[in-house]
Design a protein around this nucleic acid. Structure first.
Lengths: 225, 225
DNA sequence: CCATCGAGGTGAACACTGTCAACTTAGTTG
DNA sequence: CAACTAAGTTGACAGTGTTCACCTCGATGG
């Protein structure tokens, strides 16, 4: 009873920690995706959250940590989108891979700032890539990986790799190296997204058609005959 | 004689304008590509150039302008690299396109900071993309474009588009839309470069092989049969 | 019931940043 | 020599990320 009472009563503070944190994340996410990363200062985020800048540092080590937390939210979105396409239950592995590429590209284009933050900005102190590398090495060695070590980024890439593996397993591809092929497919999708979101005024002949042609090129290029 | 004297004597000032400008560009380029864009402040650039920060603003409107000037230098490099591959005089249009893609990717990987600055950072006030769009529209309409309006970026893209056109003209491709195909090829190369330079720790199975596979996928995907 | 503790929150400061108006300096020219 | 102009500096403004010392107040153990 004591511990239960503790928990319920602690919840009655002013605003509970997690709620504040969530509020800050919401506000920061809004401002950041409206005004951009540089134009959104810690002080302005704090002001909009009705709080002092100092408080932000009780919830996030620094600005990068705050932004990276927003990045995590994007991974959530991306992972959900990719999961959606798996749920559709397309039987043809090639159609599945195509659907996955489309989902990736559309999600990136729909959330340009977040995409830029997570995939086009190097935040080495997060060690996201290093963890990814470790994850992939252990996967290759067939090790079992504890659920709590699996990040959303890993989930996303694993989905892609699985889709690629399915196509390879069906003996439909020229190249058989699943890992390398998955990387190539990612590079293809990433190229599309990053080009389109950073060069909005370039005057691409037709973005939808470009996406279509590009994914087609990739898939056709990967397949036999 | 008067005007000649003016010019020669003016050269004896302290340091002539253009020389200072070049020096600043050199110093800034060095610092920027060693320490990164944010860690390189105007004051530190100035200090290293043995000058006050204020003076930088007599040569460049603001920091973005300075960085964009450095970007221009990268376009020079890129354009030279692409030209080199044309000079090689490969007869097979497919081999030519492949060589061009390789040159692009290698140049990007060899100059990651500059690549990031020019292709992965949106500097709308430069209107580079808008000019590009205008250029391409006029090209499509068959207009002649005055040499002084042609930027190095345009040259680069035109080289790519030409290489693609050669392949299309040889009736080797499935898709015949040169513009869209060129955009897709660019997206492919760009995806490779940007992924590799931002995610150095991702643990790509083998970068050289990835480039090989990726370009192959693209080319094979574009060709008939 | 009261001292204490810790989480939520603040104010003021530090060392920076990009930028600019006002000023000095020094070389050229009529 | 006087006037002009390009090269360069001083000193400030407003804003940045971040931190330290401090306060407040509800919950808790004695």
């Amino acid at each position: 009873m004591k511990s239960r009472a503790t928990k319920t009563k602690t919840a009655k503070r002013r605003i509970e920690g997690p709620a504040r944190r969530a509020q800050i994340l919401r506000v920061a996410g809004d401002m950041f995706s409206k005004d951009g990363i540089d134009a959104t200062s810690m002080r302005r985020i704090a002001a909009k959250a009705g709080v002092t800048a100092t408080l932000l540092y009780k919830h996030f080590a620094d600005k990068d940590a705050l932004l990276s937390a927003i990045g995590d939210a994007f991974f959530e979105k991306l992972n959900a989108d990719l999961e959606q396409t798996s749920i559709k239950g397309l039987k043809d592995p090639v159609a599945r891979l195509r659907a996955l590429m489309h989902a990736y590209v559309r999600c990136g284009i729909a959330n340009p700032r977040e995409y830029h933050l997570t995939f086009m900005t190097a935040l080495p102190q997060l060690r996201r890539d290093a963890k990814m590398k470790n994850f992939r090495e252990r996967m290759r060695r067939g090790e079992a990986i504890p659920a709590e070590e699996i990040t959303l980024g890993m989930m996303c890439f694993a989905r892609l790799e699985q889709a690629v593996a399915d196509v390879v397993d069906a003996k439909l591809t020229r190249v058989k190296d699943v890992a390398a092929l998955a990387e190539a497919v990612w590079a293809g999708g990433h190229g599309l997204v990053s080009l389109i979101i950073t060069h909005r005024d370039f005057g691409f002949t037709n973005v939808d058609r470009l996406i279509e042609i590009s994914t087609d090129l990739f898939l056709h290029g990967a397949l036999k005959d």
